[in-house]
Simulated assay, not measured.
Amino acid sequence: MSNFTHINKKGNPKMVNVSDKKITKRTAIAKATMFLGKEVISNFSDNELTTKKGSVFQTAIIAGIQAVKKTSELIPMCHPLLINGVDIDIKIIDSENIEVFCEVTIEGKTGVEMEALTGANITCLTIYDMCKSISKKMVIKEVKLVEKTGGKSDIKIPS
């Protein structure tokens, strides 16, 4: 259990103490791939679909940004963070699928991987919610971290 930073010597959960860490610029980028299907994507025009609930991608981006800011309320061991920036991009990649990229930046003592992953997930869930009247066959296929900078290490995972 010694490799798990969120477990103390007694085996109980703990929040990592970051007080001795240096403040550095930290970024994380998460990518989500989602199957919408031709039935949904055929309704898009100029990379957007407006429904009775509003603009799908614009609403999903706002939901993703809100999710990034609320990550510590959703995931118990995440630290509340002062987020410097969030950038979410949604791309239709073919006649059935989209990609969502969520980039989060802070200057702080802990990383923002969980915030980027949460933002990407909630963006997809919002798209699902707004398009489910057209089709319930949509699938969030993959959500993964593709890049992290700052702190102890930088990583880039091929997407």
Rank of each mutant, 00 (worst) to 15 (best):
K25V: 14
K136N: 07
A67P: 05
S135R: 15
M15G: 08
V16P: 00
K52F: 14
K52V: 05
M114T: 09
I140C: 12
D129F: 11
H6V: 15
I98F: 10
V56R: 08
I98G: 02
A28P: 01
N8T: 03
K91R: 14
L117M: 13
V68W: 02
K148P: 02
E99Q: 12
K22G: 13
K141T: 15
S153A: 15
I65W: 01
I83N: 05
K156R: 10
V40M: 13
P76D: 14
G64E: 08
V56P: 09
S153R: 11
I127D: 01
I92M: 11
I41R: 00
V100E: 04
D89L: 13
A67Q: 09
I61D: 09
V143Q: 07
F44H: 05
P13M: 14
S153T: 05
V86S: 02
C131I: 00
D94F: 11
S135Q: 12
K53E: 01
A67G: 09
T5V: 15
G151S: 08
I127V: 11
K144C: 15
T59Q: 01
K52L: 12
T118I: 14
R26F: 04
V68S: 01
Q58K: 12
F44G: 03
I122P: 07
K91S: 09
G64L: 09
I106E: 02
L49P: 01
S95K: 08
L125E: 06
S2I: 15
K38D: 15
T50Y: 03
I155L: 14
I157F: 13
N3H: 15
Q58P: 02
N17R: 12
E103I: 05
T110M: 14
S19H: 05
E96M: 11
K152P: 03
T110V: 09
E103M: 14
A120Y: 04
M34T: 05
V16M: 06
G64C: 11
I155N: 04
I65R: 01
L36K: 04
K25P: 03
